[in-house]
Design a protein around this nucleic acid. Structure first.
Lengths: 206, 206
DNA sequence: TGTACATCAGTGAACGCGCGTTCACTGATGTAC
DNA sequence: TGTACATCAGTGAACGCGCGTTCACTGATGTAC
């Protein structure tokens, strides 16, 4: 019973020999997710077609469905990836309030305002995500929780309850301020919006 | 020289006899703008086609270009109208901080969260407006200024400078909080987000 | 080491559909006489 | 008061286009022998 022959057969049946490098397809898939993130944040989800997304990744439209079951499927994975990346960047911040102070200055900077493609997915896509299917909203919810945890840990590790509320205040005012500053036409006023946003957001650091 | 005959002729030439009620076309145009506001807030700007917008107003697609030069033209007018309406609703609020307290409770309510079509245009459309042409962004900027003036007047009429900054804080945190609560899947958590948003926003009333 | 070959990531043309926009037309309107 | 008519708000079919999706095919890959 058993023995090497049976194991060999089972192995052959369940997992045929990989012709391509094992990580090759995974890498392509991840590349699509990341370039789609940039494109979505720049042109919107509705504003980005499959053919454009695939060209961004150096591929043609036909290959798309070998990686994702639908555009909605891609969107959900992009949202998850974008928030994971943002959570990661919070983890890289210095501990305590100093880290959050630095985050604020970078987040509410003219550079971030003028480069949505490389910036915060919430500021660029939140209200479009609100109109997405449940799967995408769920991906956002999970990702946002992780980010709020990171912020809360830097605010008051000894009091998780109130730190969570303050973390939400800090995040929502940062997102709202950046969105408003991106819409304001007059560059001078837009700069003032950012400055006042930093002052206002500091209320949640104290 | 002149006399009634010349005046009569000029009048005839400049302004041919109106065959329809003078306000009829204006009323239709306003109806399109208002129903489009609802539709945009529900399905997004990119997500709302001309034929659907016109059907909402009880018309067919062909009539659209008798009222607007393009979809972008309509969007700019809708944004202006939506913010005018919001400014009007601020004007109807009781004077002083009490009015803003009432606004907050209504704005960050489950009812508002669950009915974007009847709600705040900023929360529903801000990041889509950021990707619109300059004319639309300009319309938003003008409308938002008027709203911030109304909020500031209720905060500290004697100190316009700092009141303006606080008004911006109140508005941005309200918008950001509502957007986040609309994306959170778990209804219980979404309710908590609203409650914490009210607490957080109160910091700008003090 | 060299060759025949099974695999499968990726290609590119095609599908039906809804988009924004155009236009020849219809028919309700109120006016002129 | 009744009728002929100029006006023009609104109709609805059509335009080219890009959308999301499908599919028969291609050709680079690494394996087996």
């Amino acid at each position: 019973m058993g023995g090497w022959c049976g194991q060999w057969l089972a192995g052959r049946l369940e997992e045929p020999v990989a012709r391509y490098d094992k990580v090759h397809k995974q890498a392509t898939r991840q590349r699509i997710i990341e370039t789609a993130g940039h494109r979505f944040k720049q042109d919107g989800i509705d504003g980005s077609g499959i053919a454009t997304l695939m060209a961004d990744a150096g591929l043609t439209n036909g290959a798309f469905y070998a990686h994702f079951s639908s555009k909605d499927d891609l969107v959900a994975h992009v949202v998850a990836d974008q928030l994971d990346t943002q959570a990661e960047s919070f983890r890289a911040l210095p501990a305590g309030r100093a880290g959050l102070e630095g985050f604020l200055r970078e987040y509410l900077s003219p550079q971030h305002r003028d480069n949505p493609a490389d910036g915060c997915p919430s500021a660029a896509l939140l209200d479009e995500i609100a109109r997405c299917p449940a799967g995408t909203k769920h991906a956002y919810t999970d990702g946002a929780q992780a980010i709020l945890d990171e912020i809360a840990a830097r605010l008051a590790p000894e009091d998780p309850q109130s730190a969570r509320a303050k973390a939400l205040g800090l995040y929502t005012i940062a997102v709202g301020t950046l969105q408003v500053s991106r819409v304001v036409s007059d560059p001078k006023v837009a700069d003032e919006v950012l400055e006042q946003g930093i002052q206002n957001a500091r209320m949640f650091l104290g």
